[in-house]
Design a binder for these strands. Structure first.
Length: 888
RNA sequence: GCUGGGGUGGCGGAACAGGUAGACGCACAGGACUUAAAAUCCUGUGGAGCUAUGCUCCGUGCGGGUUCGAGUCCCGCCCUCAGCACCA
């Protein structure tokens, strides 16, 4: 055993042993309970960053812990390797997306291996390889068959200069990332998946996972789905040139319908489109302006001024018979509800603003319960919209009813009379999966002049991406420029046809990858349902909370579809979810404003922190920052990323401190759900801890080698105290890990090591019982350290047992604690007078309540306080404290 | 604006179920070892005060409340982070 702790040497050694012994390779086994530990798979951007290290350190700690607890642990990894950055690299540097991606994967796999994560590498999956995306296409066809995949017209970000569609990131700040010109919106036919068909299930099934998922994630998903119950009401349209009979509106507040002063429709509404040519030039002008505004890409930071105009059309309120003007308004969205609303300014903030601006009448029809008996309309000038429920007034026969009851009854009434019905709408939209990009799974659809839209045959999958494609970032989709790809024969009639050139959103790949891990080589199916039924659902999923909504809702949706086609037999794929906080660092940037949207955030140009001159105050707060050229810069604390230049390279950490120390520190530094501001200074403490353990182990190694069982029944006070600390630590670490805390168990291990250092008997003088206590302490500590610093733990353990098989092949189990050994014999009890601590006494842990009270009252310090005072009460909390309440 | 988290030493953070606030680590200071430095080991470290080997007072964002007792529970503020933002 080396005198010193050489991290790199032992890390390399154990990584090799693990690989040779295949200790992390798992198969289905009925002998052990299974545990599926899953971390979100990385995008191969080039290098790991500290956020990855954190994510995978958590997952690896859990996987190790469960293995040591006797579980059959599936712990895989793979690559989310389709996506835009590969194309950006192709444009900027002329590398092929495939080469760029594979190189990055090789680089990052090397980093993962150097960190020593315990993956079953045989199960590694690659989203960009045909054997994987074949089944993206397979799923697409299944969905198409079930009517869950369809095409519709929608808006995309469009750069007129480059003639290209842009992702939201490429259009950030409203400017094109390539040419810097303002981005507009363009209508395009795109493929959608009908996630809205599962809206209710996505909502209802949350009760199956609410115990295992963070409430904040479920809440965000609930908001994202945005279920809202209300009613449709048809307003008959008076004579209009296009001859449209009625306008259907959606409202959650049908009880306020007597307060409607207008119908407001979106500029895209059919009523507007079909009557457009008959409108006055003034109306046309406003409609055009609203439509144009909607095409601009702006930040949503600033609230848009409400605008609109009376179209001159008239509609009739079916409840009151009142004739109302039909307005067009920029605040009504065509995509939600029916694209038309009734404007009730008295009881809706937006309608209130709108009515104020255009001087429309405001009629109150709901009032507070206490006002309802003598409600005087004239006096009640509303200063703001009254949006609460209340009592109906000015509402014909419905006056006097409570909102809640009126909503129900008025909806029923509308239904009976045939001009409305109860309705539920969702904020959730169908999932647009079309991308006008190269680096994604091609959508397996063919356009035939004769047969129309034709799905590919399953036996023709995968539809492979052509490899040599010129990617410029300009013009239409890259695949459209590849004749060998585009030209094909119709799967139905065999005639020359054209292939769909859109590829799929990469969120498709990540919807089902963790099912594929279970059966990664399957050529005919995405996976064998029998195999998957052993491993899934995922027992613990770990990842960043930036995926709280999109990825996690899409994969829940995907699971329900897989259930409906018989691939799985459960509703929810993930039992427990842990969302870790981001690893962040300081960033420095200048801001380029968007001329079209001066109030927006604009575009940020980042400077690497080591190039920036920074002034700080004594506490380290930044006072000012300037670029190398002397330009003043802004600063922030943001997620670490390559593009922002604030990343820390894990390789440098491994080189300087070792993988174990890096992993240990990132778990110790903060609770996993907190944001972690990266600060390198603290990592030294982790190295020191490992070195301290190394040294004391080395000192005791020979002495404890033979002390496997206690030879004596009696232990010295020192040995007893050490054993107590050992068993207390086992208890703490176990409890902490079971509740997914990772910083506190490491602190507990540090305490145990401190206690080992406090053991004042030297090995030469140690009795066998002392050696046993020391062995118990060190052996427990080493095994408990494994989840956090596996290489170091394995190395020390190998010296303890004298073989190089490693813990798992030695059948090592996480230590169990014995409660009677963990119990303190003597405890310190504070004695309070009126809630303030005045003395402390040491007593036996088994002391009787009466005796403790007696000791407290006779304590010499306490006597001074209570002499000549009247004692009102004495509160004795067993094993905690004594509080004596006296008259002051 | 709405919703949800969160404010504890110089810093990251501990604290069972209302019961000794500040575990553990970083940083800092002092000491031992050393020709010296690093490393290591030991000690100290919330603030203020005093008649200083001890004792007193204050202290978990602010103001109130409940309680024998509040970082923890309740009410009202302030700040902060995150998500959503014309969703009818």
């Amino acid at each position: 055993m080396d005198e010193k702790y050489f991290a790199k040497k032992i890390e390399k050694k154990w990584q090799q042993i693990w690989e040779e012994n295949k200790v992390f390779q798992v198969e289905i086994s009925q002998e052990k309970p299974k545990f599926y530990a899953l971390e979100m798979l990385p995008y191969p951007s080039g290098n790991l960053h500290m956020g990855h290290v954190r994510n995978y350190s958590i997952g690896d700690a859990l996987a190790w812990y469960k293995r040591l607890k006797g579980y059959n642990v599936l712990h895989p990894i793979g690559w989310d390797s389709f996506g835009q950055p590969a194309e950006d690299a192709a444009i900027k540097r002329g590398v092929r997306p495939l080469d760029w991606t594979e190189n990055n994967i090789n680089q990052m796999r090397g980093q993962l291996k150097r960190l020593g994560f315990s993956y079953d590498w045989r199960r590694e999956i690659f989203a960009h390889r045909p054997d994987y995306y074949k089944f993206d296409q397979w799923f697409f066809l299944k969905m198409y068959e079930k009517g869950l995949a369809y095409k519709k017209l929608t808006q995309v970000n469009w750069c007129e200069t480059c003639k290209a569609t842009l992702s939201n990131e490429q259009a950030s700040g409203g400017l094109c990332w390539r040419c810097g010109n303002p981005v507009t919106k363009k209508d395009m036919q795109q493929w959608f998946l009908k996630i809205t068909a599962y809206a209710d299930q996505l909502l209802d099934d949350m009760k199956e996972i609410e115990n295992g998922w963070p409430e904040k994630v479920l809440k965000r998903q609930r908001d994202w789905i945005g279920r809202s119950e209300g009613a449709y009401v048809d307003f008959a349209l008076k004579e209009n040139p296009a001859g449209i009979e009625k306008v259907r509106i959606f409202t959650t507040r049908i009880d306020t319908i007597y307060g409607a002063n207008a119908i407001v429709v979106a500029a895209e509404h059919p009523v507007i489109e079909s009557n457009f040519e008959y409108f006055s030039s003034e109306v046309k002008e406003v409609v055009r302006k609203i439509l144009a505004e909607k095409r601009r890409v702006v930040d949503h930071e600033v609230e848009q001024e409400k605008e609109g105009i009376d179209t001159g059309l008239k509609a009739v309120n079916p409840f009151s018979g009142e004739e109302l003007p039909v307005w067009v308004g920029n605040y009504v969205m065509m995509e939600y509800g029916t694209g038309a609303v009734m404007s009730v300014p008295a009881h809706d903030e937006r309608d209130f603003d709108f009515a104020k601006k255009y001087g429309l009448p405001i009629r109150q029809v709901i009032c507070r319960i206490e006002e309802s008996t003598n409600f005087e309309n004239a006096k009640s000038q509303l200063k703001e919209a009254f949006t609460d429920y209340g009592i109906l007034v000015n509402s014909g026969d419905w006056s006097g009813k409570h909102s809640e009851q009126a909503r129900k009854e008025m909806t029923e009434f509308a239904e009976k009379k045939g001009f409305g019905k109860a309705a539920v709408t969702y904020r959730l939209r169908d999932w647009g999966i079309s991308r006008q990009r190269y680096w994604g799974a091609p959508i397996p659809i063919v356009y035939c002049d004769v047969c129309g839209i034709v799905p590919e045959k399953y036996e023709n999958l995968p539809i492979k991406l052509p490899e040599n494609v010129e990617i410029t970032g300009m013009g239409e989709s890259p695949l459209a420029k590849v004749p060998e790809f585009v030209n094909c024969s119709c799967p139905r009639c065999g005639k020359l046809s054209k292939r769909e050139t859109d590829t799929m959103d990469t969120f498709v790949d990540s919807c089902w990858y963790y099912f594929r891990y279970c059966d990664p080589q399957n050529l005919n199916m995405p996976f064998d349902p029998k195999i998957v039924s052993y491993w899934t659902p995922v027992d613990q999923y770990i990842g960043g909370d930036d995926h709280a909504v999109m990825h996690l809702i899409y994969t829940r949706f995907w699971t329900k579809v897989m259930r409906d086609i018989g691939l799985v037999n459960f509703n929810e794929p993930v039992r427990k979810l842990l969302t870790q906080g981001m690893v962040v660092g300081e960033t420095f940037f200048e801001v380029i404003p968007n001329p079209e949207d001066p109030q927006g955030k604009g575009k940020r140009i980042y400077y690497p922190p080591d190039s920036v001159k920074v002034q700080r105050d004594s506490k380290g707060k930044i006072l000012s920052a300037t670029s190398p050229e002397g330009k003043p810069l802004q600063w922030a604390i943001e997620r670490m990323s390559k593009s922002k230049g604030n990343g820390v390279d894990p390789d440098e950490m491994i080189e300087a401190y070792g993988a174990d120390a890096t992993r240990l520190f990132i778990l110790f530094a903060a609770p996993v759900e907190n944001e972690l501001v990266w600060n390198e200074a603290g990592i030294e403490g982790s190295v020191r801890f490992l070195q301290r353990l190394w040294r004391i182990f080395r000192k005791w190694k020979d002495k404890i080698a033979e002390a496997k069982t206690p030879s004596e029944q009696t232990f010295s006070q020192q040995a007893k105290a050490l054993r107590r600390k050992t068993h207390q630590t086992i208890k703490r670490v176990t409890e902490n890990l079971e509740s997914l805390q990772f910083n506190t168990p490491i602190a507990a291990l540090m305490e145990l090591l401190n206690a080992i250092y406090d053991f004042k008997i030297e090995p030469e003088n140690a009795k066998e019982s002392d050696a046993f206590a020391m062995r118990e302490a060190l052996e427990s500590l080493i095994i408990m350290l494994t989840p956090f610093a596996p290489h170091t733990a394995e190395e020390l353990y190998s010296h303890l047992v004298g073989n190089q098989k490693g813990m798992l092949l030695n059948g090592v189990r996480f230590p169990d604690f014995e409660l009677h050994l963990a119990k303190d014999e003597e405890i310190e009890i504070p004695i309070q007078i009126n809630g303030k601590i005045r003395s402390k006494i040491k007593v036996s842990a088994e002391i009787k309540e009466e005796e403790l009270k007696e000791l407290a009252l006779t304590d010499h310090k306490i006597k001074e306080y209570i002499s000549n005072k009247e004692i009102n009460r004495v509160i004795v909390v067993p094993k905690r404290l004594v509080n004596i309440v006296i008259k002051p």
